[in-house]
Design a protein around this nucleic acid. Structure first.
Length: 272
DNA sequence: CTAGAGGCCTGCCCGC
DNA sequence: TGCGGGCAGGCCTCTA
């Protein structure tokens, strides 16, 4: 799926089309995605869209009568299309606007979600999330406090949404490479300078990816249908057996916590 | 409490 | 060319 940069890219892409528009209809063509699509979503029909926000990898479409909460799962994507364009396979939800356009949600694997919240951020899927990585709340002091005495390996730690949101499998490997930290290091064993470096690199990698329109591996596209261009900047993800772009050592690959993880043994030594 | 595995789905790629 | 197996950007839930 879309990680945080891909979700933010989608938000930036749909916002100018949605803001201020009235929702004429919400068409649902599947019984359920990750969860059943709630009937209450229809309360947004006739409402004017006030704002489009992002929290973690969730998009929030706010109206005076409640908020639609959208998650793209592993394979979801959003497009702005003319309302006359017929749906294709896996087009599960349309948000029909009053300007002849619609927001169309496509998701082959159906791991995504469309939910309804009467009070935006109060929905249960949002209340236990950690800080946003691109805010000042996510800083070295915070992360060091959370990491203290923990044995979990750093790769899994930064992918834990209760610690920090939005760092998915691609950007976890990339951030650790940029910070020269081995993904298997127990997080409590990192020193202050490594924690500081990690925080900086997570922010930098995510911000750079947003500027490039996200990472297109195969099925992510921006709202206008174009791919994201961060894939060209990946240093380790998906590069197992290839030469490190910095030192020419071979990139390693191993499953950590059931997720493929990539690193350079020379640039990211395991030194405990 | 935590860690680890299973599960949700479809499409695609690989090897036979 | 066809088919089975394994794998994929997420994350919730169950078990030990």
């Amino acid at each position: 799926m879309p990680e945080l940069p891909e979700v933010e890219t989608s938000r930036l892409g749909i916002t100018p089309h949605l803001q201020g528009q009235t929702i004429n209809a919400i068409t649902v063509r599947t019984d359920k995605l990750r969860w059943p699509i709630p009937q209450e979503l229809q309360r947004l029909v006739g409402q004017r869209i006030q704002s489009i926000r992002r929290r973690a990898k969730y998009l929030l479409i706010d109206t005076p009568n409640g908020t639609a909460i959208i998650h793209l799962g592993m394979s979801g994507s959003l497009r702005i299309l003319d309302e006359t364009i017929p749906p294709v396979k896996h087009d599960h939800v349309d948000l029909v606007l009053d300007n002849g356009k619609l927001l169309r949600y496509n998701d082959p694997r159906k791991f995504g979600a469309w939910l309804y919240s009467e009070v935006g951020l109060q929905h249960a899927v949002l209340t236990k999330l950690g800080p946003e990585p691109l805010t000042d709340v996510f800083n070295a002091e915070y992360l060091e406090e959370k990491a203290k005495n923990k044995k979990v390996v750093v790769k899994q730690f930064i992918m834990n949404n209760a610690i920090v949101v939005g760092v998915g499998n691609i950007y976890a490997s990339e951030s650790l490479f940029m910070a020269c930290i081995n993904p298997k290091t127990p997080v409590g064993a990192l020193d202050s300078s490594q924690i500081t470096r990690l925080v900086i690199e997570i922010k930098t990698v995510l911000e750079t990816a947003i500027k490039k329109g996200g990472t297109t591996l195969k099925d992510f596209n921006q709202v206008d249908g174009k791919p994201g261009y961060f894939a060209q900047e990946l240093h380790v993800y998906g590069r197992a057996g290839k030469e490190c772009l910095i030192c020419q050592s071979l990139i390693q690959e191993e499953k950590i916590g059931q997720r493929n993880t990539f690193w350079c043994e020379n640039c990211q030594p395991f030194d405990l």
